[in-house]
Design a binder for these strands. Structure first.
Lengths: 238, 238
DNA sequence: CGGGTGTTTTGATTTTCGTCAAGGTTCGGC
DNA sequence: GCCGAACCTTGACGAAAATCAAAACACCCG
């Protein structure tokens, strides 16, 4: 038995084993990684990392959704990223983290101390490569979000957001879903949607209502969205 | 002689040799890298990479400043990044580039075909590591810019922008400047400042005028800025 | 040096979204 | 099933920035 006590369950059974940055490691490498990490459950609303803290942790998301946020002193908040299963979170390599990480749903993560992880990564180029690819992809996504924040109006923001949600949440589903989700549960409150899009909660609410009235979407409950007219949504996304 | 014809001048004399991702490579490694890259001059306004193109190139900036932009079909533009000497540009590893790259000033870059670079990088973990550190830093910067785009008002945006310019341009100077630049030449037109901040040119112009009237800055010419009251600027940046 | 072009500034007006305020809805606990 | 708290929606209003328009300025080139 490699693990004892609080060490994590074997990576063999990990549901993100083939999608996270640990994909491609052989059994021996995986065992070493196993030895420095541990599983942790985070309940919705709980913080995993604080802004400007020394960023002691990095982690892989196994299950659930988490938000990355930055805020100003006077309390304005902006969500700068969203982490889904198999995503990597935290800031390796010697900087303090520029964002806090808070669970939006109950979540399960596989955490490492930053130091342990840094050391391990430097010894395993294949893992660093995976991390690099992931970071480049995240940078691309972030940049296209800048376009949204800087140049799109409220309607375009909401439409773009709903389309992205429908794509991202489809990937997460257990069944091999073909294409984007038509109906899904939002992992965000209205305020959090506002914090993603750089809007106020009132504007978000009004836009949702408007899209519902125009039969573009249906809102079966507060947290659920059904896309009725995807083409219209795409047109509105600009 | 390793190089013939259009191959680049030796990296030995490169001014960013110790700051770019090639720092830390030994002479042999550098020679191989030398063999797949070449120097290129880009004049102000010229494109190096087009949005959604197959991104055939990656490059290191040797001298000058370049912008990374994305645009919507209807012509709205957002500058999503700015590259200074020693920065890396382009999208390695198999994706199409999500932004176009255009020179703001005359610039000199050291370009590689994406395929050559990818192959070389995978064989040189030390270089991949440098690239990873750089990408992580860029992601941090981009995220703090999202905060600005989503949650700051015009005054705060302009103040933050001027402070960042003063820091970034100081680093670039030849002399070992201590601290941020008090006076500097903007590499951006008013329209480009607007495209960085998600504002219109008129709003940018009015904010500049206002800061000048309030004696926070001086504007010796269209492209020059002098920071008179840095503390006030910091306070305004929010 | 002067004229033409493109850029920037300034002004007037409109639009969008934020703010403030009140009323509903949902949900969990007792 | 009722109560309270948190969350969401709606409305009226106001402020900030966008838009539209025109004038002023810088710069290039003959």
């Amino acid at each position: 038995m490699s693990g004892s006590g609080k060490r994590m369950a074997s990576c063999d059974t990990c549901v993100v084993r083939n999608r996270a940055i640990c994909a491609g490691l052989n059994n021996l490498e995986l065992e070493t990684l196993n030895a420095i990490g541990r599983r942790r459950n985070v309940t919705a609303g709980e913080s995993l990392i604080w802004e400007d803290d020394d960023s002691l942790l990095v982690a892989n998301v196994i299950e659930g959704v988490l938000k990355l946020t930055t805020s100003t002193e006077d309390g304005r908040e902006q969500i700068v990223g969203v982490a889904y299963p198999s995503d990597f979170i935290g800031r390796p390599f010697g900087q303090t983290s520029s964002a806090s990480v808070v669970a939006l749903t109950d979540a399960r993560v596989c955490v490492f101390s930053r130091n342990d992880f840094d050391r391990y990564a430097r010894e395993h180029p294949e893992l660093e490569h995976k991390l690099l690819e992931r970071t480049l992809a995240e940078l691309d996504r972030t940049r296209s979000w800048m376009m949204l924040l800087g140049r799109k109006n409220a309607t375009e923001k909401i439409a773009t957001f709903l389309l992205e949600m429908s794509d991202r949440l489809a990937e997460t589903g257990c069944a091999p879903v073909i294409g984007p989700a038509k109906r899904f549960a939002l992992p965000f409150s209205r305020q959090q949607v506002a914090d993603v899009l750089g809007l106020t909660i009132e504007t978000v609410s009004r836009q949702f209502t408007r899209l519902k009235n125009e039969q573009v979407i249906e809102l079966p409950s507060r947290r659920e969205v059904e896309i009725i007219d995807r083409a219209a949504l795409i047109a509105l996304a600009g």
